[in-house]
Design a binder for these strands. Structure first.
Lengths: 174, 174
DNA sequence: TTGATTCCTGACGTTGACGTAAACTAGGGC
DNA sequence: GCCCTAGTTTACGTCAACGTCAGGAATCAA
């Protein structure tokens, strides 16, 4: 409901002839391809409030910049790596966005008490995700350990067998 | 299509009065509760071929043993921790089941060549999953590292601020 | 200017992983 | 035997996360 501000230049300074190649604003197809998702997925993410393209063409077509693409990749990581659903991811991204706002306020304010508050909140936001990732990583590490242990046993048994067959083999080349 | 062999005792030696308390065969409700899932989920897993209860009552009701419950928990781990869908999990479990079969053949055979083959296949099966887990764990570790780094920065900034406010505070107790 | 692509907005379809309701049966306590 | 809870199958419902199609407008190379 807050999209389509009045047509064009909705995403701040577009500067068509200003930005160099790296800072290009690309259409949805290219952004999708770069991030390894479909265009439909990007529209869906937008509908859910996960990502608003940072610009639009004069005709109203979505334009994504590098940060947008990075955000998409980030969303995918949160999804596939951590198993969050898109609702949870929305909340996480909000937290991260808030964090950016806090960072700006932090820099522009010299009020010590307020700065402390900001740091505490930022730390809390960050720590929530950290603990989730940590626990998941822990469990995965445990799983990995048992798998590697097994793998080592197979290797050991194979080595023993190599010795046996080598000993039992009649025409051993060496 | 291969279930319901002919009614009862389809799950091998049931031995109702034989097993002690730990080896009990429990009905679906209890098994579900123990594993933290719903009864529907267990029937669904069975339909997909993920898990056949190791016994049935004379009337045809499912009976699960401890290994079954462990298998359910395992399925859930593969699902939530590694993000596999139930089809992939079916394949993985098949591999693991094959592995048990191979283990038995390994023990009953003394044929060196065959033993080598078995070890190689087992090792391969095991290694496939291991590599997936390893890569996931790697990526998670990376994510965790950056989060912890951030957390450390917040902590440092907070500590600095503590010093400042303590110094600026008029009635400082110390 | 003109096609050929690409993008737009609906809107309906699909897939996975179950939830839920209905109608019926099994099993254990009194 | 009776009753109540828990189990059975069958079938339709649901929710997330998109896929896909229709009809029209925008963009771009020629």
């Amino acid at each position: 409901m807050a999209k389509h501000v009045t047509g064009a230049e909705a995403g701040g300074t577009v500067g068509e002839g200003d930005g160099a190649t790296p800072g290009r604003l690309v259409p949805i197809g290219e952004a999708a391809e770069r991030a390894g998702v479909s265009a439909r997925t990007l529209r869906w993410y937008e509908e859910l409030g996960l990502l608003v393209p940072s610009g639009h063409s004069s005709g109203g077509a979505r334009r994504y910049d590098d940060a947008d693409v990075a955000r998409i990749v980030h969303i995918r990581e949160l999804q596939s790596l951590l198993g969050f659903d898109l609702g949870e991811i929305r909340d996480i991204l909000r937290g991260e966005d808030d964090l950016v706002g806090l960072r700006n306020e932090y820099r522009s304010r010299s009020d010590g008490t307020r700065r402390r508050e900001i740091l505490l909140e930022a730390s809390s936001i960050n720590d929530k995700l950290r603990s989730v990732v940590a626990s998941k990583q822990q469990r995965l590490a445990g799983m990995l350990a048992t798998l590697e242990e097994k793998q080592a046993r197979y290797g050991k048994l194979l080595a023993e067998l190599e010795g046996e067959t080598a000993a039992a083999e009649p025409g051993a080349g060496r």
